[in-house]
Write a protein that binds this DNA or RNA. Structure first.
Lengths: 338, 338
DNA sequence: TTTATTTACGTAAACGTTTACACTCAGCTG
DNA sequence: CAGCTGAGTGTAAACGTTTACGTAAATAAA
């Protein structure tokens, strides 16, 4: 079967390729009658333009790349939803790349994307990333970038984040108000700004209420989940005075539940727990988990919106376009007072 | 700044574009010395080949498309993980498209993909899809396709599924053994083969144990979750004799929990619940949910493996390459006997 | 009428690769 | 020494679009 491309259409209609191309783009240079003829045949033959030829010629791919640590984190799944929604509305495609929080993978992915495969990149940085030269190099390649959630502020571009500091402050105060005095903080990673912001909110809230900081109560998570559980177990056993846990990321909140169960610590009677999470089913937990819930869908949509605007207007992205959205503290039984 | 492409490299090295291209592909026609010179400059200038030019010329994009209903379903998130893993290993890229279970969107996406943007497609059919002409048309466009999980057997291609019938039969028997006699079945959709298979496993298990089928106990879910909850509420109120619920999809299991709570029906004392689910945190539910857990990651990896093999060997995919993986029934307290 | 403008279309170059084919020059063979 | 071989490189066409430019005919302005 002969391929159906512009040449084929042109031959069958006795027109030039140029006219057919213009007709399909609804160019004013083509008469209405010709446009009609072309469109009729195009749909009849199920013509679909070759995306690669078009991309090559126009030097734009109508595709954005999304680089995230993992897709099994519900936050990122929701964010992708928002991204895909915004992208589809403008006729853009979405390429997904997973770093698995691994620095080397992130570098390889970014390098690859510099081949012009995408018009822009949305990125949430891997927790294993320390050096950011690979990200900076995107600027030379002229590929616009917008960070979301896990950002690196030393890169001058827009970022879409949540009010991590404030919500951590608020969550910590919530634990304090519930009577907690020895609150452990489970940190996602030292490399990530969201981790640092959340830690700072926790610290400042303690300080504001006259509680001294206790470095032993701060546990930095790793990529290895079993290791996290083990360390948390050690901590809880050595420090029976712990009466509150603030997990700065969903996975660690779940680990906290498991550890409390194993050690026979009752939630919320013995220990109150609050954690960042986007899982809808936390309300079914035993007991329902008090969460800080980020507007994940909106974050994705907003980040995509900023990126696509820049891509289409061919305008550079400045840090001033950054957006901060508010998370919500949802109180459930895991922090209830007797 | 001048673009760094083959032409640029060729000029700086006083070679022809052809030689540079061949050198970078490690062609035997190029002397070792030249290869070395070319490679050195390429890395020095951070040369990255233009993916679109290459795709256009070779007529292959090193990209596969993944078309799924949603990414917020944990099953699909895990499957994407498996797909991305298999794809990356072979140097392929992954485009994600979400149908949101909407037929029209699915048609538009498939039509778009026929433009040659992808070398192959992995697909889980939308529950809203009845007619499959758009899927069949992929064959004419010569784009290989592999189904996973939500398949349409009338399309002659490979499919990766789980033993839905057997695990449903087993889950139903598990409820029967726990003493249930009036088991409701929450169905995902009448359009999907997985729904039908799961329903059939439920029916046959009942029949094998001498229980008559009761159509009133079969509730077909819709895309509207609130509606599902409402209907389930009605059902549970009209039929206080219901002592078991078998949810054929995660979302409906969660809804069942909510409804039982609202109506004050205790799990597992009054009603026992089992559901398909890939959520790891079901063990934290109140009570922990007995699940049929699908090997989602393996499903994705296997489907991608079959597809990529066909793409690389330029070989058609036959239904005989289909794979059936086994799900696992994980017993937890939601089906415990007193 | 001549000249300018507009309308509708065609010609051909370009995007960056890949690759069939041609070519040159050593080093051989007979 | 003519003819051949093969290693290494170059020339140019091709992939399917888009688009700057050219052009012919029709219309409007002079």
């Amino acid at each position: 079967m002969k391929p159906v491309n512009l040449k084929r259409l042109a031959e069958e209609l006795n027109l030039s390729i140029a006219t057919v191309s213009r007709a399909l783009q609804d160019s004013y240079e083509v008469s209405a009658a010709t446009k009609e003829r072309v469109r009729a045949l195009a749909t009849a033959l199920h013509y679909e333009p070759n995306a690669y030829a078009s991309s090559l010629r126009r030097n734009q791919s109508k595709t954005i790349g999304v680089v995230i640590p993992k897709v099994t984190n519900h936050f990122f799944a929701l964010a992708i939803n928002g991204i895909e929604e915004a992208a589809r509305q403008r006729g853009y495609h979405v390429l997904i790349y997973l770093t698995h929080d691994d620095y080397a993978r992130e570098v390889a992915i970014i390098q690859h994307l510099k081949g012009g495969r995408v018009d822009g990149i949305l990125m949430s940085v891997a927790s294993g990333t320390e050096d950011t030269a690979h990200i900076r190099s995107l600027r030379d390649a002229n590929i616009p970038l917008v960070f979301f959630d896990r950002v690196r502020s030393e890169i001058a571009t827009a970022q879409v984040t949540t009010n991590d500091y404030e919500s951590s402050y608020q969550a910590t105060e919530h634990l304090l108000a519930a009577g907690c005095r020895h609150i452990a903080h489970l940190l996602i990673s030292n490399n990530l700004s969201i981790g640092r912001n959340r830690l700072q909110g926790y610290r400042d809230a303690l300080h504001a209420h006259g509680l001294p900081p206790d470095p032993d109560l701060i546990l930095a998570g790793t990529m290895n989940n079993e290791q996290n559980v083990g360390r948390l177990q050690d901590l809880m056993q050595h420090r029976p005075d712990i009466d509150g846990i603030f997990a700065s990321v969903e996975r660690l909140a779940v680990s906290a539940y498991h550890v409390c169960r194993q050690l026979g610590r009752r939630i919320p009677e013995d220990v109150k727990v609050v954690g960042f999470s986007n899982l809808e089913s936390v309300s079914l937990f035993d007991p329902p988990l008090t969460t800080i819930t980020q507007p994940a869908h909106d974050i994705g949509r907003e980040a995509a919106r900023i990126l696509l605007q820049a891509v289409e207007k061919k305008r550079a992205i400045s840090p001033s376009q950054s957006v901060v959205l508010n998370s919500e503290l949802v109180q459930r039984r895991s922090t209830a007072t007797a």
